[in-house]
Every structure is written in structure tokens, then in C-alpha cells.
Simulated scan of single mutants.
Amino acid sequence: MKNAQNNAQSRQRLSKTMTKMLRHAPDGFGLRLDPADGACEAEALLAALRRQSVWASVTMEAIETVVRECEKQRFELRDGRIRARYGHSVERFAYEAAVPPAVLYHGTNAKALPIIKQEGLRAMGRLYVHMSEEKPFAELAGRRRGELVLLRVDTEKAAQAGVTFYRAGNEVWLADYVPAEVLYEDGP
């Protein structure tokens, strides 16, 4: 059991490192992300990881496992290329505008709620506001910052107010901004 726990901890550490590399500091690791979609060659990511002593023996299989098992579906691996689907803080990649479901969810914390009620949802340290199609995914995102508050986004009203939605994949939707008047607290 201890070995399984260590493997899970190792995958989590690898996931966090990949997140930093693909979302927040690609240049710091010598990665060049495609300006169109934010992807790089998976072999380039592997080589960049291996340049760090802690990941010197990491394998492509380990990367594939992280991509497959990441609860938040942060990564996409396709045709030998890998990318972070969302959450970038250093470079804005183009997403295709799309029509979302009638309701999306955003997880946040109770401390942020008064400001959100006044100013709406802003990207803050990221380049987009993140929302999800299902409550559990939004809860997962919001729970890590303190007491969870789940917000429903009325996407039809938001679109009427000028919000453009972008599908990032696997239930994740993005927007530049979501006004307060289209947000509702999701009750028990």
C-alpha cells in the first residue's frame, strides 16, 4: 500500500511540474509552445523534465499516466504533442468560440464571494475565467482555496451581455469575463 501511495504522490508531483512547464513557465524550462494551441512535442517535454535531477529517470509512460489519470483533465496528448488545456498565465492561446450548455459552474471560496458579487468573475492571475459543465469538477477547483462556494452561470444571459465562451475540452469552458448579474449561488 505504501508503494501505491508513493506512486500516487510521484504522479501528483509530476503533474504539478508539468503544469508549471506547460502553463506558467515554459521558457524557464527551454520549451517553445506552439502559438496556435500551446502544444509542444511530447519528447521535448520529456527531455526538459529529464534535465531536472529529480526527474532524470522519468519515462514517457509516466507522462501518459499523468495525462490519463489527472482528475482535472489538465493535459491533452495527441499525435506526439502535449499541451495544457487551460489555466495558462503567461501566454494566451486561441480557443474557438462555442455555445456552452445553458448552465456552467464556477467553484470559488467564501472570501472571494463579496468581490465577485460586485465585479463578476475575472481571470485574476490567469488569462481566462474557468467554468465547468458539471458541479464536481467546479467543486474540485474551488475547494482548494478555502470554504467552497459554487456559482451557476446563466450562459444565455451572459451571451446576451456580450460574453464569448470558449470550449477548452473535457467539460472546461473559458471566458474573458463573466458579469455578476448572470451568477447565482448554487444551493444545497
Rank of each mutant, 00 (worst) to 15 (best):
E76N: 04
W55L: 06
E171L: 11
Y184C: 07
A97C: 05
T155D: 05
V149M: 05
T59F: 02
T59I: 01
Y166H: 11
A4M: 08
V153G: 08
G107K: 09
D37K: 07
P114Y: 12
H24I: 01
H24C: 08
T108V: 06
W55C: 05
F29T: 04
E69P: 00
K135P: 02
D37P: 03
A42T: 15
V54K: 13
N6C: 03
K117S: 12
L46C: 06
E147G: 04
N109K: 01
A47T: 15
N170R: 04
A102N: 06
V182M: 06
D27Q: 14
T65R: 01
R81K: 13
V172S: 00
K157R: 15
R81L: 08
E96G: 03
E181W: 05
A158Y: 09
M60T: 07
W55P: 06
A102V: 10
F93A: 03
L77R: 04
I115L: 14
A159K: 13
A97P: 13
G169M: 07
T155H: 10
E43G: 04
I63V: 15
A4R: 14
A110W: 12
M18F: 00
E91W: 02
L151Q: 06
A94D: 13
A180G: 10
A47C: 09
R68K: 09
K117D: 12
E134I: 10
Q118L: 13
A47V: 06
Y184I: 03
D154K: 08
S15Y: 00
K2T: 12
A168T: 03
A180V: 07
A47S: 14
D34R: 11
L174C: 03
Q5Y: 09
